[in-house]
Design a protein around this nucleic acid. Structure first.
Lengths: 260, 260
DNA sequence: CGATTACTTGAGAGACTTCAATTAGTGTGG
DNA sequence: CCACACTAATTGAAGTCTCTCAAGTAATCG
């Protein structure tokens, strides 16, 4: 991993990765930034990395140098405690930014790993900070993006709070479909980049339970599952399965979720 | 709730809440900001609110106007889905900042409620943004603080990922003790501001399970529990209970936590 | 093409939830 | 100031869902 590439060389590469031309323009950091500011932001973005399945983008303990935009492919981020227990924090699709965990202490405290061949835009933070000074809109946008991260984790927590495994799985698939839709992909035909084991860990379950969950959703006619290919036949039913009672009676449930 | 108080009146009040004099100086936003910048930040902070138990600081759907620092007392934040299911996202002690959820969309998507009589510093975001322009260190600090929020949620997720109820409860108490320590309070003698039901919801369990958990930890001689008063008699044992095997063999556990 | 890994499926055990009842604490009004 | 009502917390017993253990099948990779 080279330390700092001067922005003058490799114009071709630079052109190719120009934020203006990027399909993720509306999803990523530049959203809402206008012409002049965008050029400045462009200058910040470093040659993109290419990661293979299993490659580590950053790991726990590593000093903070940059934020990373997923350009193509998919990442997982996770923490590992002293006992070796892993908890997957999130799966990250194109347009999403990772690395915010390190802003607090200047060291990463989680790991980021590619789930498949992925392409990453690196945003060296020092440079980024200089530009945010000139472009207030970028500063605001940076906060907006990190806030999205917070919101995403809220959703994850809400899903993990469901007592029934089926609800958690339904919630996971539902949110994945949503994210596919934002990428202008078909939100009823998912190609999951992660294994069943990763889904299980993400949801706080074991593999077998997830596997059985898929089977049952298929039996119910909600999904058509073929390994990592998942077609959502009944999005309405899937949505209703995200809540215990099927989301019929919207009565308040203040206690604790209300039942496994 | 008044809309905007001019900074010229009520000098006494203003003085009293000056960041410089605040006991939370090192924990809160001003940490790392020097003299001149600090004065500017001081000017941003609005009259502090006083909340009673059950009072709502902000609710889902409300437009974003400010961030809020807990000065005294305690808050809980939570989301509520269409079916009425509540998931508590966090408990917030003095020095912690809430409201970041609204940075993404300019509307709050969670609720914040006082668990007990609390005092809040309001940071109107428009003003705050002006100052961050003049004080780059503040901008960096703001990112640092919101990153802490992200990290805190990672811990919450890791706790919810534990399959055993006992591990979750131990993890919760362990992290509460940590946070008490940061407040320079006795970290072995906690006064929990939240009910058992809230703890249960936070951990994805039911009240009864939490209650039994407390009882068992008391029987084991790890805790001395008297309602909301919790003394941690064996912090070492408590720490070891945060992991399934008691954190003896630090072998990697990649699968999914490794067993309920 | 063989070995490894990923996924699925089955049966049994265990842990948490559910339901129900009791106790303790809190707040209110007479 | 105390009685009453209400909420919070605890405890017990039974049911159920998920985990564990085990085996088998399918896909992937060298």
């Amino acid at each position: 991993m080279p330390t700092q590439a001067s922005a003058s060389v490799l114009d071709l590469n630079q052109l190719r990765r120009t934020c203006k031309a990027c399909a993720l323009y509306e999803l990523c950091l530049p959203a809402g930034i206008d012409g002049a500011g965008l050029d400045q932001l462009d200058a910040v973005v470093r040659d993109r990395h290419s990661l293979n399945r299993g490659d580590i983008l950053y790991r726990d303990g590593q000093p903070f140098t940059a934020l990373y935009v997923v350009r193509a492919g998919a990442l997982k981020t996770y923490v590992q405690d002293a006992a070796g227990d892993v908890q997957i924090l999130g799966f990250h699709l194109p347009g999403e930014i990772v690395g915010f965990d390190a802003l607090a202490t200047d060291f990463h405290i989680s790991h980021a790993e590619a789930l498949e061949r992925s392409s990453i835009c690196e945003l060296p933070f020092a440079k980024l900070q200089q530009v945010t000074h000139d472009v207030p809109a970028l500063q605001r946008q940076l906060l907006r993006v990190i806030s999205r991260e917070v919101v995403g984790e809220h959703e994850h927590l809400a899903t993990m709070g469901k007592q029934q495994a089926q609800e958690r799985l339904a919630g996971f698939l539902h949110s994945m479909a949503d994210r596919y839709a934002r990428l202008n992909r078909d939100s009823t035909s998912l190609t999951l980049p992660m294994s069943r084991a990763y889904i299980a860990n993400y949801l706080g379950l074991v593999v077998e339970t997830v596997s059985r969950g898929f089977t049952r959703l298929e039996d119910m006619g909600v999904l058509a599952v073929n390994r990592k290919q998942v077609r959502i036949l009944r999005p309405d039913v899937l949505a209703s399965l995200c809540s215990p009672n099927g989301a019929d009676a919207p009565r308040p449930r203040v206690q604790s979720g209300s039942g496994r």
